[in-house]
Write a protein that binds this DNA or RNA. Structure first.
Lengths: 242, 242
DNA sequence: TACGGTTCAGAGGTAGGACCTCTTAACCAG
DNA sequence: CTGGTTAAGAGGTCCTACCTCTGAACCGTA
């Protein structure tokens, strides 16, 4: 049987032809040049029209390639100025977390539960990794929150900002990225479901104050406990509202 | 002084104008439609020319938007066929960024620290939310891990699978999504940086056993402590190796 | 009946040109 | 020194034309 003969011959020896989009090839070249250090951070790329000529592709293809690199954070296009190479910071590398979380379309309750599982650890880590500079940032955030509660400024966001500041204080890019992604989700939900919002009040201020104290004392265990308590209070408020 | 006058006026009341690229706006619309479930996995999008008409932008802008969605894995364009919606898993969402992530060591190192902040809370939540069904899943995962350590099966992945099973046991979609995304990153790093790998051994088995015990006992506090201890051990191993 | 070739329409991929808008810098006028 | 004008460079958008791939319908021949 010819069929058997075919099976007996293990190596077809037919190489894939392959090609793919031109923009992909352009992207690959750029990535390689950046790995090799030929393209350093801050370098200005040639104009799109010129790149098109050098790569021998149309400007459209060049633009699609640049858009990809832009999305990856490897490049930044500024209208009227040019396109510049950029080595993305650790936080930006974690950007896809945002999409991952958003796509899971979590319910409001699951986000609150997530916070209770996550943020105590974040607070503890912040206490462990605190530096003088981060301490100042935290202090400033707390101050803004208190002012907001007392009527000046946006109350809705200053609470989130404080929690975000705590995450920042960990100095850990993964923590910061995840935290930011989740809070963005929370922000969206609050616009849609008023039931997910709560009015910060004096008790919240006390909670934040206690948290900051624990962090400044470099006491991870206490910071974790205080954060857990604070979130429990908030969750209780939400249920009470509903 | 006019400068003082400016400062005294707290509300500029000038809204940012903003606009940005057209393709961004198109991308946003698609993402929203996908979140809302209007665009289900496998759906065929209208042709580019038609989309251009409907969005009232040029085909170029539509294409740039589709390229972005393509890169994110949210859409797949097949030459000659059409463009199709895809709901990718965490693995695919992180994929494009893996080539970039090796550029940043700090980002890689931060993942382990993230786990120590996050997973104890996950374990505690799993203990609190345990059901009979999830308990069985956890048991099975532990069994596979033990078999792998004793020489049968893939050691590298069974450890991750067990931790993933713990996250699943929380029943919280947000927790599960974040956990999956982070482990995706971890998996990738282990292939590239040998320093991020460790050999699971008997001590790990003991750690996992103790963790499962605590969860089955529905003891959140103990589960959190055990997970923290387990991760500390692993981290210690890693340092010892280096 | 089965296989292979042809044709055709639909859709993505590429090209190149035209025009708009933004940014910067140089220049000019008050 | 300030503010307006101008011009050049560069990204953003649009349009039109053409190429190539895919799939389906329609053949023909063995």
């Amino acid at each position: 049987m010819t069929a058997k003969d075919e099976l007996a011959r293990p190596a077809p020896a037919f190489r894939q032809v392959a090609s793919g989009r031109l923009s992909r090839q352009v992207v690959s070249q750029f990535q390689q040049l950046m790995r090799e250090g030929v393209l350093g951070s801050g370098d200005k790329l040639p104009a799109e029209r010129e790149l098109a000529e050098q790569f021998n592709v149309s400007r459209n293809s060049v633009r699609e390639a640049l858009r990809e690199l832009d999305l990856l954070g490897l490049v930044e296009s500024r209208h009227g100025e040019g396109t510049f190479v950029r080595h993305p910071g650790p936080a930006e590398l974690m950007a896809p977390f945002r999409t991952v979380i958003e796509l899971s379309m979590p319910a409001a309750e699951s986000v609150m539960e997530f916070r209770m599982a996550f943020e105590p650890g974040v607070a503890a880590l912040a206490a462990a990794n605190l530096t003088a500079e981060r301490e100042q940032t935290l202090l400033a955030a707390l101050e803004r929150f208190e002012q907001a509660v007392h009527g000046e400024g946006a109350v809705e966001t200053s609470d989130a900002d404080f929690h975000l500041a705590v995450a920042q204080a960990t100095g850990n890019p993964t923590v910061i990225a995840v935290h930011a992604a989740v809070y963005e989700l929370l922000h969206d939900m609050r616009k849609k479901l008023p039931s997910a919002s709560y009015d910060p009040h004096d008790k919240s201020v006390a909670g934040h104050r206690a948290l900051l104290d624990a962090i400044r004392a470099r006491d991870p265990a206490r910071a974790g406990r205080v954060m857990h308590q604070h979130l429990s209070d908030v969750a209780g408020e939400l249920e009470h509202q509903a």
